[in-house]
């Protein structure tokens, strides 16, 4: 009897220790997602009204959001436009800095200091940053107009935040300013992970800086570039804090993002929970597609192979056991 204790089955602890995660996940993520989905198919409007299932036309809310109202499509267009205008310069600058900071032939001083400074805006509360920039672009006076009048003389103040394109570009700029440091730190760490002998070989073969960067560095960090692209896209699709607090989606809905649309539908007076829920689910679908692409590209090929092998082995073992 004593000996048998030595072969305690520890399997149950695997389940036991996963229970807290599982329970919290069911209550705080899965249930709300399903409930949101359900509300998307109902008449739920107003705080206390009953949620009646739309029996005749279950996809009414979805159709309304996608086709009948132009506001959601405008919001989606804005969101993507703001993201693209921020992402291209962000990636460009991050790549340029990465090329400089990882070039062994250039010995730049204070690299660590620059990295720390470039990353700084990323940890500051977005809400505070938005209100700070709102103050900066204030009219008729604010730091930016202070500079404008110094250059162009008094009377040339610009009311930035009533111009549609300007406001949208300011949102893009803030995003760019907050995230290029983050992207750069990630890219640099990716490049540092490349086997240095490849660079040495290139140098001996007489490759110049540009050739080394485009022919060796970029192809070697393909995965990390893609990872950055997709995480940034998902983050961009969820943009909320800055457009809301900089100009509250205005002027004339120029910075209305999809998340701001959802928030406005549900929580700013109109209580259209069903419309907001339908819009949430549409965004969810878009993000799932993006994530699927991300995981497909991120999967570790070697590990996937190993897993297959292990599975096969286990199957054979089981077969052998059954045979015995």
């Amino acid at each position: 009897m004593q000996k048998k204790r030595g072969v305690v089955d520890y399997t149950k602890y695997g389940y036991l220790f996963s229970i807290p995660f599982m329970v919290a996940f069911l209550i705080f993520t899965l249930y709300p997602v399903l409930y949101t989905c359900y509300i998307g198919f109902t008449t739920k409007q107003g705080l206390i009204s009953e949620a009646n299932f739309l029996v005749d036309d279950p996809f009414k809310n979805f159709r309304e959001v996608l086709f009948e109202s132009t506001l959601f499509r405008l919001a989606l267009k804005n969101t993507v436009a703001i993201w693209i205008v921020n992402f291209i310069p962000q990636m460009g600058l991050a790549l340029l800095l990465t090329a400089w900071f990882t070039d062994n032939r250039l010995r730049i001083k204070c690299k660590g200091f620059f990295k720390v400074i470039f990353y700084l805006p990323n940890i500051i509360t977005m809400a505070s940053v938005a209100i700070l920039f709102r103050a900066f672009f204030g009219y008729p006076m604010g730091p930016v107009n202070d500079i404008v009048t110094k250059i162009k003389g008094p009377g040339s103040e610009i009311y930035f935040l009533i111009k549609k394109t300007t406001t949208r570009n300011i949102v893009s700029f803030i995003q760019f300013w907050m995230w290029y440091g983050y992207t750069m730190v990630q890219l640099v760490s990716g490049v540092l992970g490349i086997d240095p002998s490849i660079f040495e070989a290139a140098e001996i073969d007489g490759a110049n800086r540009l050739q080394t960067f485009f022919k060796i560095t970029i192809p070697s960090i393909r995965t990390i570039l893609l990872f950055t692209l997709v995480t940034s896209l998902i983050g961009g699709l969820n943009m909320f804090d800055i457009p809301m607090l900089l100009a509250n989606g205005g002027p004339d809905n120029a910075t209305l993002t999809t998340n701001l649309y959802i928030y406005n539908q549900a929580f700013s007076g109109s209580y259209k929970y069903n419309t907001a829920a339908a819009a949430s689910m549409i965004m969810f679908t878009i993000i799932v597609v993006c994530s699927a692409i991300l995981f497909y590209c991120m999967r570790d090929k070697d590990e996937a192979e190993l897993k297959k092998l292990r599975k096969l082995e286990r199957k054979e073992q089981r077969k052998a056991m059954a045979g015995a």
């Binding site: 997602v33 399903l34 409930y35 739920k44 998902i234 959802i262 929970y273 949430s280 965004m283 993000i287």
Partner: peptide, 17 residues
């Protein structure tokens, strides 16, 4: 699979509950 679920997707249902 659920790593990327953004909080906005859960918000309406979570708030209602």
């Amino acid at each position: 699979g659920v790593m990327m679920i953004p909080s906005t997707v859960t918000t309406i249902g979570f708030y209602q509950a």
